Computed example of a mutant assay.
Amino acid sequence: MAKVPPFHSNKPNAKNVYHDNDKCTEGNNIERQYLAPGTGGRPRCEHCNRLA
């Protein structure tokens, strides 16, 4: 696992989760203009959990 600083999407209707793994396809699909740093008080992405 390649852990990265937590980030999430601030796009309306996006999943309410944060990501912290650079191998997470869901996190990698977030469009650059919607990337936000930190967890945003959200739970960790299930895909990131499985990659841990």
Rank of each mutant, 00 (worst) to 15 (best):
P37R: 02
N16I: 07
R42L: 11
T25D: 15
R42C: 14
N29A: 09
A36M: 05
E26Q: 10
V17L: 00
F7Y: 13
R32L: 11
A36W: 07
N16Q: 13
Y34N: 15
K23R: 12
T25E: 15
P6C: 04
S9Q: 03
V17Y: 00
T25N: 12
N13G: 10
H8M: 04
R42S: 13
P12Q: 11
C45Q: 01
N10E: 08
I30D: 01
R44V: 06
R32T: 08
E26H: 13
L35T: 08
Y18T: 03
E26N: 10
H8F: 05
N21P: 09
C45H: 00
N10I: 14
A36F: 10
L35E: 06
P5D: 06
Y34W: 07
P43E: 10
N10H: 12
R44K: 05
E46P: 13
D22C: 15
G40K: 00
E31V: 09
N29R: 15
H19K: 02
Q33L: 12
G41L: 02
G38T: 06
E31A: 13
F7P: 07
T39Y: 01
G41Q: 07
P43W: 00
S9R: 01
H19N: 03
D22A: 14
N29G: 15
P37A: 05
D22I: 13
Y18P: 04
C45K: 00
R42N: 12
H19R: 00
A14Y: 00
P6W: 01
H47R: 15
H8W: 03
N29D: 10
T25W: 04
N28R: 07
C45L: 01
D20K: 03
P5C: 05
N13R: 07
K15C: 15
F7M: 11
P43T: 11
P6D: 05
N10A: 15
A14G: 15
Q33F: 10
F7W: 08
N21F: 01
L35I: 09
N21K: 03
P43Y: 02
G40D: 03
N10Y: 09
V17N: 00
T25L: 08
E26K: 08
I30H: 04
T39V: 04
N13C: 14
N13E: 12
Y18L: 01
Y18N: 03
L35C: 12
R42D: 10
P12I: 14
H8N: 14
S9L: 01
T39W: 00
P12N: 12
E31M: 15
K15S: 11
N29L: 10
G38W: 01
R32N: 14
Y18S: 04
Y18H: 03
A36Y: 06
A14P: 06
E46C: 15
I30L: 02
N13Y: 08
H47V: 12
G38S: 09
N28F: 11
K23M: 08
E31Y: 12
P37H: 04
D22N: 11
E26D: 14
R32V: 08
G38E: 08
P6G: 04
H47W: 08
K23C: 14
K11D: 15
P12F: 12
A14L: 02
K11R: 13
A14T: 03
H19Q: 02
H47S: 11
G40I: 02
N16Y: 08
T25H: 13
N16E: 09
